[in-house]
Design a protein around this nucleic acid. Sequence first.
DNA 1: CTTAGAAGTGGACTACAGTCCGATTGTGCT
DNA 2: AGCACAATCGGACTGTAGTCCACTTCTAAG
Lengths: 207, 207
Amino acid sequence: MPLGLPEIGPAGPPRERADAARNRRKILDAATRLFAARGVDAVSLDAVAAEAGVGKGTVFRRFGDKSGLAAALLDEQERRLQQAMLFGPPPLGPGAPPAQRAIAFTRAYLDCVFDHPELVRMSETASPGARFRIGAFRFWRLHLTILLVEAGEPAPLAEVLAHALLAPLAADHLLAQLDAGADRAAVTAGLRRHAELVLATRGTIEG
Amino acid sequence: MPLGLPEIGPAGPPRERADAARNRRKILDAATRLFAARGVDAVSLDAVAAEAGVGKGTVFRRFGDKSGLAAALLDEQERRLQQAMLFGPPPLGPGAPPAQRAIAFTRAYLDCVFDHPELVRMSETASPGARFRIGAFRFWRLHLTILLVEAGEPAPLAEVLAHALLAPLAADHLLAQLDAGADRAAVTAGLRRHAELVLATRGTIEG
DNA sequence: CTTAGAAGTGGACTACAGTCCGATTGTGCT
DNA sequence: AGCACAATCGGACTGTAGTCCACTTCTAAG
């Protein structure tokens, strides 16, 4: 391999420069280390930049803001869930009735959030509206909207119901309930019931 | 009236000093003025303090943080809704079946939020978890939990479902949908449907 | 290898939320 | 009216998110 191979990505825009890629890794590694050591909320982006040995401007150039950094750290997990929804086995993937798929999604998503609740919260609450600007959120919302329409819901209502299904899955809500004394199992059960209620009749009547 | 009358409040703790009360009014008035003039998001608490002619420390002493100031401005409206829920006519007040009351509440609450969405958002998103620390939120949640239990939901599920009913009513969610092109009527209709689905069968089967 | 210009860098800078404490001002009592 | 004390005031101070731009480094083409 005499030179850097062309390595055409997925029809990529220009391509990332080598030093930029190196810095990105350094930043992500540093963030992971610090979050593990001190807790997500106690780490400033100055500290991440220092630990990574890069300037603060570099962190912001790469990730935009705190929310972007958190989203990047969660990226792999999200991709896995997206793959499972699009190509995996039922009931999460194609094949099951839409209502079942939607219920399975809420469960799978909830498990993801419970894996790193503070990190997800940071990605969602870094600034007002941050949650809705993240690419992944649009994906979840679109997916649920489609399933609701397939299940017979009129399109305009389906959009709002998709939002309503996602709203209580926000990390901020989940953590608030845990802080209030609820345990994870109770929250999971309650949210499963919520999804069933929203999708109930339809799943069996129209499915 | 030779001296300040005793004026025993509702079995009050010590009582508020005269200058403190005066400053509180000045701050609330200044905030109202600035929010109206420049928009909620463009006003800093420094600016509020300056406009009110008091020091910054005074603003924080009185209201704790941004969220507290917003909550104070919304206070009157919230009290009115609380009164209507506890003592007003059905379906919001006592008398109607619990499911009907809960549905009526989501509608009434939504109207309140739509009156000052940015202000409500500020009170809810000033810091992570701010929404759940506000006294009013606990009231709404408790109210819905009670109604759900009356409607036959087991208590542990009712707690989580109450959260799930409130979650999509967060100002941040509503504004995100408006920004995404939805109109207020569509969101209202969708959230009404959501409430009906969560409360549906129960209202008629068990009510 | 050289070179031109795009892409990336880093740290000084701004603005804002929230804290702290010495100075000030009401309040209740005599 | 005068006093002692506690509540309140206000602005200087700290720490953080996010911006900006003069400077450096990489890449690709000749």
